[in-house]
Amino acid sequence: MPVDIYLNVIVGGVLTGLVYGLMALGLSVIFGVMRVVNFAHGEMMTIAMYIAVALFSTFHLDPLVMLVPIAAVLFAFGYVLQAGLINNFITRPEYSQFLLLIAIAIIIVNTLLILFGPDSQNVQVSYAYDSFQLGPLIVDATKLHAGLTAVMVAVGLFAFFRLTRLGTAIRACADNYTGALVVGLDVKQLYALTFGIGAACVGAAGCMLLLIFDVTPSIGPAYTLLAFVIVIIGGMGSMPGAIVGGVLIGLTEAIAGLLFTPSAKSMFVFAILVLVLLARPQGILRSA
């Protein structure tokens, strides 16, 4: 096979991986701050994807254009969900939180199934089949748009957590719960905000991913698992780790799909997970 095929696949993998990274970032932020694993993460993403599908099919609105309002809707969803339900479970044992989120996930999947039916759907944007040529390199327009948008959103989030007072307050909560209470932070409110931000992240990622993949109601669990794997690979609670992990997984999938059969690509993802768990259980970007 000629070298440029590899190159094209690698670039495509990295771009998809950036979107994966953004999706995982949402999970990582939620876990990092409140130590709750969002087992309904992928399902929340499918909500965003279906909103985007609906907006596209009725008003012909590009998912990337609608990214901000959709992310805002997901933010509100996440905020309400956390404040109304999940917050009561913060101090409960892990399995109890798990059961709660599984219930939420089942409700989401089946509501979408009732509303949109079981068939897979996608959006046919005007640039669906366009590609850019850079020397020997051919890049799909959809992947390029999606990947670059993911970078922009991620950078925005980093800036938010580093530079704004609110972001700093949330990080303070993550580092030291009691300390945050003592200095008078409204931890409850910050937790709800964090869950909202995590949901907005995965909502934005859903808009981007819709350019690359189809959506069905039942796809949620697979993405939850993928986000999970990425976060573990990158390091639970590490924000750069999520992006790096996402890119690594995007690359792995792309290369495995090229060298073997696309249907076996997840095997390689899980193999990497096992290797990382054994070599660096804390994740590649975290110190022991």
Partner: peptide, 8 residues
Amino acid sequence: GTNQLFFG
């Protein structure tokens, strides 16, 4: 999905 929804 209705059945599963109620289940959830």
